[in-house]
């Protein structure tokens, strides 16, 4: 328990540590609701994948592992820079903390930029669900073979048996899941901007860094969502 009076401790808290733990608990409760929110999307994904496995194989083959993998690395790196921002704030290195926050925000924008490129590609290839959705699994199979990719028996069966309407369902879930994730990234970038302004103002110190810490929890959670989205959307059924 800290004995010195602290201007940052709100009157209804006993001390700074209690205030900090309350802030953490509040953010964790919010994150549990977020788990259930994304959980609904993951449940829909799992059920339809178990009903239409062939369509999921085809849908996943039309996504770019290079772009998805690159984005995974970018987001993991942004989690590191976020952790470093909290670390710097905890150790009274506010200038360094501001720089780590900027870097985190920039990596977030790189992720979103790559996502824009991916979405543009899907629009070009008529893979956006709706009246203009069009996919010909056999033509896609021919493209894979033309690219010199080894097409096994299992994969051939999937492409032959896939119903285009079910592939459209895969893309509905792809856009819903990555879209909701991207919305969280945009909100995260806004939070980073707010943290940056406050850090520059000198609001945070080793005695008070709760907003940096709980914003970090949110950022890492969004990273975790992508950790699951990447294999489930891009890698499933590649063999």
């Amino acid at each position: 328990m800290s004995s010195h009076s602290n201007a940052h401790v709100a009157h209804h808290f006993e001390n700074a540590e209690q205030q900090r733990q309350s802030a953490q608990l509040g953010m964790w409760i919010f994150l549990v609701t977020e788990v259930m929110f994304f959980g609904g999307l993951f449940a829909a994904y799992t059920i339809y994948r178990s009903l239409y496995p062939e369509a999921w194989v085809v849908g996943s083959h039309l996504l770019s592992i290079k772009l998805g993998g690159f984005n995974t690395a970018v987001l993991l790196a942004s989690s590191l820079t976020m952790a470093m921002a909290v670390h710097a704030a905890q150790t009274d290195k506010q200038k360094a903390s501001a720089n780590w926050i900027i870097l985190t925000m920039l990596l977030g924008f790189v992720f979103l930029g790559v996502k824009v490129v991916e979405y543009a590609g899907k629009i070009d290839h008529h893979l956006v669900p709706g009246p203009h959705f069009f996919v010909d699994p056999m033509a896609e199979l021919a493209k894979l073979e033309a690219a010199g990719i080894q097409v096994g028996q299992h994969l051939r069966h999937a492409f032959e048996g896939a119903n285009p309407n079910h592939i459209q369902l895969f893309y509905s879930l792809y856009f819903a899941m990555t879209g909701m994730h991207a919305v969280h990234m945009i909100i995260g970038a806004g939070i980073m901007l707010w943290l940056l302004v406050n850090t520059r103002k000198g609001v945070y110190s080793s005695q008070y860094f709760n907003p940096v810490e709980v914003s970090g929890l949110y950022w890492h959670f969004v990273d975790i969502v992508w950790i699951f989205l990447f294999p489930m959307l891009y890698l499933i059924g590649r063999h």
Partner: peptide
Amino acid sequence: ARVLWLYAGAGAVFFVIMMALML
């Protein structure tokens, strides 16, 4: 604090319940 483990665990447990019942 261990109370945070309880909340993080609750998130995982309720997610598993939702998946198990729907599936």
